[in-house]
C-alpha cells in the first residue's frame, strides 16, 4: 500500500517531550479501511499532529466517501 504524505514543516513542538515534530508513517483507520499516511509526530512519545486543514479537508472528504460506501 502506498503512503501519502501530509507531513509539513510545523512550529508545533511536543510540550511534554520538548521535541520538534518529525515526519513518520502512521496507520489511520475508518470504517474497516486502513490508510498509511505520513504525518508529523513527536519522535519520543508518538503524539500525532492532525492539522486543522487536513482534518477539515482531505480527511473529512475521505470519511464522507467511506460513509457512503
Amino acid at each position: 500500500m502506498s503512503t501519502f504524505s501530509f507531513a509539513e514543516a510545523t512550529e508545533w513542538r511536543c510540550a511534554a517531550c520538548d521535541q520538534p515534530l518529525q515526519p513518520a508513517k502512521v496507520r489511520v483507520t475508518y470504517l474497516n479501511s486502513v490508510f498509511n499516511v505520513e504525518l508529523m509526530v513527536c519522535p519520543a512519545c508518538d503524539f500525532i499532529l492532525v492539522p486543522e486543514n487536513l482534518a477539515t479537508g482531505k480527511m473529512l472528504e475521505v470519511e464522507q466517501l467511506l460513509e457512503d460506501k
Binding site: V26, R27, V28, T29, Y30, F35, C45, D46, F47, I48, V50, E52, A55, T56, M59, L60, V62, E63
Partner: peptide
C-alpha cells in the same frame, strides 16, 4: 480554534 475528525489514529503511548 476547534476541529474534529472521525478517522482513528493509532493509540499513542502515554
Amino acid at each position: 480554534s476547534g476541529y474534529s475528525h472521525r478517522m482513528q489514529l493509532p493509540e499513542a503511548d502515554s
